[in-house]
């Protein structure tokens, strides 16, 4: 019998701390699959964020560094500049990347650092208990926007993929989602390409993955997937925002 699907080798064989149904687990697995497919595990160095994925350094079978909140792109820059032969990636949530680390991600992208960034956007601070994120949708209730996000008080959610795509530095930026098996496969291809770009020296690649937070959204995991499709995708459209290999086809 042939294996149709098995656990990727780059994913550590441990139980994660993620809540039931949290799609961080799927995204971790896709990163590990991409690393396996490209055969780069023994030269990959990952950088974990602060947030729900803070313990990501326990979940990948490569060398890892745990960064301060938001600083993963700077840490990646430090590693990549001194070890150009290494494959360096950061795995960051929306609070980490789009709020406290907005400066670091913009400038790593602007410099065109030859790194891979996996940006997990679930529109909430999960680890700290469900506070409003820079990506929380208008009207969404969180513990710090208990009446729903009101643009007059709390401004508007940030579209990272679109924003970074305006820069000349990045090679490849795509927004994907993981709420159906078909989209999971598509996300896998995007993540794999983001790593392959680095192997080929093409420069900065970022994949924004729309994700869920069943616990802090107060939803069953299956309903949380539906919320991504019905509420997040209209504000955060899926697609390729920057691709230096497909001139004229950028959104």
């Amino acid at each position: 019998m042939a294996k149709v699907f098995e656990r990727p080798k780059a994913l550590a064989d441990v139980v994660t701390h993620y809540c039931p149904g949290c799609t961080h687990g799927i995204i971790h697995r896709l990163v590990a699959e991409a690393i396996d497919d490209l055969g780069i595990l023994d030269r990959t160095i990952g950088v974990a964020p602060v947030g729900c994925a803070v313990l990501a350094y326990n979940y990948f079978e490569c060398d890892m560094q745990e960064a301060a909140h938001g600083r993963a792109p700077a840490v990646c820059t430090g590693i990549k500049r001194v070890r150009p032969e290494a494959i360096v990636f950061s795995y960051q949530g929306d609070g980490d990347l789009a709020s406290i680390g907005a400066g670091e991600i913009v400038h790593a992208a602007a410099r065109g650092e030859n790194i891979t960034v996996i940006f997990v956007n679930n529109g909430i601070y999960g680890m700290t208990g469900g506070q409003m994120a820079p990506t929380t949708l208008v009207g969404h209730k969180t513990t710090t926007s208990p009446y729903g996000r009101d643009p007059k008080l709390q401004g508007y959610p940030v579209r990272i993929a679109e924003m970074l795509a305006t820069l000349d530095g990045p090679a490849y930026i795509e927004r994907v989602a993981v709420y159906t098996p078909q989209l999971v496969m598509k996300a896998k291809q995007a993540i794999k390409r983001a790593f392959a770009n680095q192997v080929e020296g093409k420069g900065f690649s970022l994949i924004e993955v729309l994700s869920t937070c069943p616990t802090n959204w107060g939803m069953a995991p299956v309903d949380a997937l539906k919320r991504v499709a019905n509420e997040m995708v209209p504000y955060y459209p899926l697609g390729v925002y920057k691709d230096i290999d497909a001139k004229g086809e950028d959104k």
Binding site: A67, A68, R71, A74, V75, T77, K80, V82, G103, E104
Partner: peptide, 17 residues
């Protein structure tokens, strides 16, 4: 770097490597 904060975190990454 874009800031002293970024610079010291680049140092962290490089020193860690």
């Amino acid at each position: 770097a874009e800031s002293e904060i970024a610079a010291i975190n680049m140092v962290y990454g490089a020193a860690g490597a």
